[in-house]
Design a protein around this nucleic acid. Structure first.
Length: 338
DNA sequence: CATCCGTGGGT
DNA sequence: TACCCAAGGAT
């Protein structure tokens, strides 16, 4: 049965593989870059970022020489900004070593490369047999075997089952085929079982309710937190700061804020004394594990007193500052965004 | 092992 | 609308 599954899937893939930028001119650099961008991020979102990155930084050497701020700005909007910091650290390490290692174990030691990404690069870029398990594979496997054990506890079991159906040859194509299948046929909400090449082998389909798998524990509600975002304008420029390297939106250029709190903090934590005014509209933003409501405070000043650490950015070019979405929303709400 | 870490698409 | 979900990794 395992051989039947991989053969049927590879045959389907040969006829139905998606055309994706990283599948043309393949190689270690493009495979690595795409896999990092695709972590917890959908294909449609990644494509324009991948195109811009590969046009500007076509190989490890050019990326390794990139300016940190330029890299972070180019990543702005893609989320999970630790990926961008690790991307740069990884590129510099690879440039120093001369090449990306081709074994799972060595790949696994590089910044930003965990178990999934190491397996994916080994299989896709280097033709190694590796067991590649992402959320698509988890879903397809859970349905194929009608797995009653819930995630995340079922991960070891799913990995073993994925191993059992991974072929000795073409493991990279097999992995990509599983992900294409999960993204286009074996989807989370309404799987298109009648179009599935694995239908006859699928215990979930046989049971009549494949969409029930994989079982998952319900996630707790996200708490609501509050903050204030400060828009300080002087002579056509707005004050921007660099957030601390670690933590939320770490390392990103940003508008000044105070810490997030359980109730609206108002004008506490303003970057300097001024005639701050709360704007009529605020911004709401959802993060992975909490929701955030922010008031917007504005001040226009002739010159600031005291030390202000940050940079004064042309308001007309605020769209080029590389701001994370929360702050891009704030600029837009104030009529300064694009 | 549980938390933390973004964002946009789809329903 | 509110929620689930996505080519996960680091701590």
């Amino acid at each position: 049965m395992p051989d039947n599954i991989s053969a049927a899937l590879l045959s389907w893939y040969d006829a139905n593989a998606r055309t994706l930028p990283w599948r043309s001119a393949p190689g270690p650099y493009r495979t690595w870059l795409s896999e990092v961008m695709l972590q917890q991020t959908q294909v449609a979102t990644v494509i324009p970022y991948f195109e811009r990155f590969t046009a500007r930084w076509p190989d490890f050497e050019s990326l390794a020489a990139a300016d940190d701020a330029d890299l972070m700005s180019a990543w702005a909007g893609l989320g999970y900004y630790a990926r961008a910091r690790n991307l740069l650290a990884c590129a510099r390490e690879v440039a120093q070593r001369g090449a990306l290692p081709d074994s799972e174990a060595e790949l696994r030691t590089l910044p930003g490369i965990g178990g999934y990404t190491a397996a994916a690069i080994a299989a896709i870029a280097f033709g190694r047999r590796a067991v590649v398990v992402d959320a698509n594979v988890e879903r397809v496997v859970a349905r194929l075997f009608a797995l009653e054990e819930a995630l995340p506890g079922a991960k070891p079991r799913i990995h073993a089952l994925a191993d059992s159906i991974t072929p000795q040859e073409r493991a990279g194509d097999f992995a990509q085929a599983m992900m294409d299948l999960g993204a286009t046929v074996c989807t989370a909400r309404a799987p298109a079982c009648l179009a599935c090449p694995l239908r006859r082998a699928c215990a979930g389909f046989a049971g009549g309710a494949p969409e029930r798998f994989p079982l998952k524990a319900r996630k707790p509600d996200r708490p609501l937190r509050h903050g204030t975002i400060f828009w300080a304008e002087r002579d056509g420029h707005v004050l921007l700061v660099r957030r601390p390297a670690k933590g939320l939106l770490g390392g990103m250029r940003a508008l000044p804020t105070g810490p997030w709190t359980d109730s609206p903090p108002g004008l506490a934590d303003a970057p300097f004394d001024a005639d701050w005014r709360i704007a009529g509209a605020g911004v709401s933003h959802g993060f992975t594990h909490f929701r955030l409501d922010c008031a917007l405070a504005t001040a226009t000043i002739a010159e600031h007193s005291g030390q202000v650490t940050g940079e004064w950015w042309p308001v007309a070019a605020i769209g080029d500052a590389g701001l994370p979405t929360l702050f891009a929303k704030a600029a837009k709400a104030l009529g300064r965004g694009r």
